[in-house]
Design a protein around this nucleic acid. Structure first.
Lengths: 231, 231
DNA sequence: GGCGCTCTTTGATCTTGGTCAAATAGTATT
DNA sequence: AATACTATTTGACCAAGATCAAAGAGCGCC
């Protein structure tokens, strides 16, 4: 690997605190690949051979179902994904596909597993990341169980805003159909959900979302009582 | 701590492979408590001071909502829980209550964190357990998103059977209202779900469940394509 | 054993969200 | 700019599950 984003990857929480030489070793065994949009990177059930780091682009993690796929997470750069499978040498639970053309760093899982054994900082970071991932999934599950669709959308928008510097307006990343799948509803219902949010301070034109009344939206969406983990 | 179940706790995957002396050290700093039924052990939002190990009884992990709580997991002995919060010194995401009188080993979180740093085997076991927990949550989320209620119940019964030596009949642990909350439905709807499962090889009388036609139930419930992780 | 309580089940009705169909908007290509 | 294709939206309708109400069942307690 020899790319200009290397420092940015090295600054990821996962790799940040580890020994420099060992990080170099990991990176030297990894390779950066460019994938076109709509390409499946791996499929659920396959053995996890690589830890992936999205450097640029947009990735969808989804679980293929008989009738319809369901989206679990959208990965934006720069971020590692499927750590859980890679670290434990297990089959992927989800499939991954690119939504846009993407550059992905592929880190051989065996090398990560080896480095974790040697490097306490990497180990600690891995544990933290796994724990945070677990907590994210708990939140998503609760969201799905206790909120109805427009509320889920409202919370998603608030969360998206929070992750992007509390921006009050932004472009949705990815298609709305994917967002619908992520939020556990049909595209038709997502449309309607945007409609009901209009009465709660949200204005949408195409992919552009404006949160015009954060108070009202928050009141409507009833966010979690335990605040999101810092990331 | 000085109890006869100690060997059983020591045999848990989490503690099994670690250094014996260090395990003794952890245990010596822990204490066993007996709680009556329907007692809240901790509440979401509190700082996680202890890793808990259920020695005997039945525990419900739930997320308190404004309108109604939602159950995330039922803990049966012997099993540790809330590892993610304890290991990272974070607030609990969930609350816990006893469903029956229970004995719980309370392991100070700081002591676990210290031991993890020192003991590679414990570290590895913790990572594995966190990863498995993550995967469980993903499965639960997918279950919630793609299956309807009777199918979720069917899968739960199949999973319960698998976890208990493929028993074809068993007693449900806990009240049905809790099971309903775990499966993300109302008690009324759980009743009806049992009704529809009657046509798919499941016989229920009170808390006693008999899977009389596993083939039919499996066909109806459409279990995950990626098989459950061994535990 | 009977009483009072809670849990579970059943029935009727309502709400949410899914399905199907068609119109509209958006985008890429020629 | 026109065309072809796909994504999104809208409307009508349907189905799953929630809610409300009331009737059993089970269980502890006196």
């Amino acid at each position: 690997m020899r790319i200009e984003e290397k420092p940015e990857i090295a600054r990821l929480p996962l790799f940040r605190d580890m020994d420099d030489a060992r990080r170099e070793d990991i990176f030297s065994g990894s390779f950066l690949q460019v994938f076109p949009a709509q390409l499946t990177l791996f499929e659920a059930g396959q053995q996890a051979d690589f830890l992936h780091v999205l450097v640029d682009g947009l990735i969808e993690l989804y679980v293929p179902g008989t009738a319809r796929d369901t989206t679990i997470q959208l990965i934006e750069p720069v971020k590692s994904f499927i750590l859980a499978a890679a670290v434990n040498d297990m089959p992927y639970l989800m499939s991954a596909r690119t939504l846009t053309s993407s550059r992905v760093l592929l880190v051989p899982a065996a090398r990560i597993r080896g480095a974790i054994k040697e490097d306490a900082a990497l180990m600690q970071a891995t544990m933290t990341k796994l724990a945070l991932g677990y907590r994210d999934m708990v939140r998503a599950l609760v969201d799905m169980k206790i909120r109805q669709s427009a509320e889920r959308l409202g919370n998603y928008l608030l969360g998206y805003s929070a992750k992007h510097g509390d921006a009050w307006q932004f472009e949705l990343s990815g298609e709305k159909r994917v967002l619908a799948s992520l939020l556990g509803m049909t595209p038709e219902n997502l449309s309607r959900a945007f409609g009901t949010l209009k009465q709660h301070g949200v204005n949408v034109v195409g992919a552009r979302v404006r949160i015009e009344d954060r108070e009202a939206l928050t009141a409507f969406a009833r966010p979690d009582s335990v605040p999101a983990d810092p990331n």
